[in-house]
């Protein structure tokens, strides 16, 4: 485990708790340049998130995915959290603004059957980003109430943001000339 930088007291406590709660599920804990992060296995996500939330990280900033193909494990799901102090949320507004902290969890699901537990039960705003990751990467979220495509049309084939998906798509539906193919044919007069 890497050492934790000074000045991040909230996350230091969190990292200690994660190490105690998760045990072998916690693969790594790093103090990166931008924020502290923990790498965990997919099965340990929900307990980890509960620990994160119990340590004051009340705002789920983002759920995103990265495809590291051809490296393995291939998919990385990154969770960003923000801790807004409770007194700021409760209405006593400090004039200088609140002093929050950020934290990141990284999960690497299995390559052949990428499944990650859904956070929809913990945060209502996890719904759309999880659908987006499913739509663009094909990573499924276990326990998501309504997992379907969000950005691409319903009948789209493939997961566009995977690295093995060509930039121009497998089959453009509205080619000039109407011919299917990975690259639109050149239209000549």
């Amino acid at each position: 485990m890497a050492e934790v930088k000074a000045g991040r007291a909230a996350t230091a406590a969190l990292l200690a708790q994660l190490a105690a709660d998760l045990g072998a599920s916690l693969l790594d804990a790093v103090s990166a340049a931008d924020m502290d992060e923990a790498v965990i296995v997919a099965a340990g996500l929900l307990p980890a998130v509960d620990a994160v939330r119990a340590n004051g990280f009340n705002l789920l900033l983002d759920i995103g995915a990265t495809d590291h193909h051809p490296l393995t494990p291939r998919f990385e799901i990154s969770y960003h959290f923000l801790a807004l102090p409770e007194d700021a949320v409760a209405g006593s507004i400090p004039s200088s603004g609140v002093v929050p902290a950020r934290f990141r969890l990284r999960v690497f699901p299995d390559d052949r059957d990428p499944v990650v537990p859904s956070l929809c039960g913990r945060w209502p705003n996890a719904d759309w980003p999880e659908r987006e990751v499913y739509d663009l990467f094909g990573v499924r979220f276990d326990g998501h109430p309504d997992l379907r495509r969000i950005l691409m049309p319903d009948d789209w084939e493939g997961y566009p943001l995977r690295k093995d998906y060509p930039l121009r798509g497998l089959n453009r539906r509205f080619n000039p000339g109407g011919l299917p193919g990975p690259v639109p044919p050149v239209v000549t007069k």
């Binding site: 009340n58 705002l59 789920l60 900033l61 807004l84 700021a88 949320v89 209405g91 507004i93 400090p94 004039s95 200088s96 603004g97 609140v98 002093v99 929050p100 945060w123 209502p124 705003n125």
Partner: peptide, 22 residues
């Protein structure tokens, strides 16, 4: 906070969070 709002919408609800300050 629960819905992950930021910017003017979060501030209109009374949370003084601004990335420029934080």
């Amino acid at each position: 906070v629960e819905w992950g709002m930021t910017g003017p919408i979060l501030r209109a609800s009374g949370v003084a969070y601004d990335v420029r300050k934080a």
